[in-house]
């Protein structure tokens, strides 16, 4: 390393130092500590009450905890509904918004607007939309002679939350729209000259070029859907009868209501492993369906 390279290295490190410090103090060290605490009985009140090493006991206990399985099942069910629904709707909207039509910018703004609304405000609005007795949706159903639906009832709550998640796809739509600008126009024109119809051009040209963006949204969607908390916390508080009690909600209760920080750390690590495993599967499968260039 020459002197200039060394100087550049130190300059670079100096600029990086604030971030590195922040990352170490607020991310890396807490992650390592939470791993250690997941093997402890720990309730935050150090030094009065030191963490007690209990080995795998938290993890063993979790395997016997019916709420752990219930919340995990709920989360997987939600991800299975919300993820494909969100991806399909956002892709569909992006394709529509990519069409050259009058007022394109206005339509784009309308689709993007809901994602600017804070999650809590959205949840409050949707609570009233879903209200069984006075809600807008049941009012409209009544107008066409259909019976009211218990949107946030034991059976309806989960699909209703998944439906609501589609409301905030504006960000994903924008990413798809950006991806669509990268689809080479000459390829689309060549396909058209060769006689390919709109659907054929979509499946044979547009979508293959869009696969890196679809993949990105898939990974972000998995992470986002697995960590859902705010909306059910506001709308259903996990009910009725734990029908919307998600994994993150379970973790929150154990950590901050029941003060089992060790147990909650174990839950967080299991959540991380599950999310990593699903992301890993997505990466593994990406070799078969994602086309870069």
């Amino acid at each position: 390393m020459t002197q200039e390279e060394r100087q550049n290295f130190f300059k670079g490190m100096a600029f990086l130092a604030p971030w590195l410090f922040g990352f170490a103090v607020f991310t890396a060290i807490p992650i390592c500590l939470s791993c250690y605490y997941s093997f402890c009985d720990f309730s935050l009140t150090v030094p009065r009450r030191a963490p007690l090493w209990i080995g795998m006991d938290n993890y063993r206990q979790l395997m016997h905890d019916s709420l752990f399985w219930k919340s995990l099942g709920n989360t997987v069910y939600y991800v299975a509904m919300a993820l494909p629904a969100g991806m399909l709707v956002s892709l569909g909207l992006a394709l529509l918004l990519n069409a050259k039509i009058r007022g394109q910018a206005i339509y784009r703004a309308i689709i993007f607007l809901p994602s600017l609304i804070p999650a809590i405000a959205s949840a409050m609005v949707w609570m009233w939309m879903y209200n069984t007795q006075y809600g807008l949706l049941n009012y409209l159903l009544g107008k066409v002679g259909l019976p009211p639906v218990a949107w946030l009832g034991e059976k309806g709550a989960m699909p209703s939350l998944a439906l609501m998640s589609v409301w905030g796809v504006g960000n994903t739509v924008i990413i798809y729209l950006a991806g669509l600008q990268d689809v080479p126009r000459e390829l689309l024109e060549a396909a058209e000259i060769d006689g390919a119809g709109a659907m054929r051009r979509l499946f044979s040209v547009t979508l293959p070029f869009l696969t890196p963006v679809i993949f990105f949204n898939l990974v972000m969607g998995i992470i986002g859907a697995f960590s859902i908390l705010t909306v059910p916390y506001i709308m259903t508080q996990g009910g009725p009868n734990n029908a919307t009690y998600f994994f993150t909600f379970f973790n929150y209760d154990e950590a901050f209501k029941f003060l089992h920080m060790g147990y909650a750390s174990a839950i967080a690590w299991i959540q991380l492993v599950i999310t990593l495993a699903l992301t890993g599967i997505a990466f593994w499968s990406a070799k078969k369906w994602v086309h870069y260039g």
Binding site: M127, W128, N131, T132, Q133, Y134, P148, A150, L152, G153, E154, P240
Partner: peptide, 12 residues
């Protein structure tokens, strides 16, 4: 049961 919960939820 559901009628009760619907009424209760309607109150917010």
């Amino acid at each position: 049961g559901q009628t009760l919960l619907n009424f209760q939820n309607a109150m917010g």
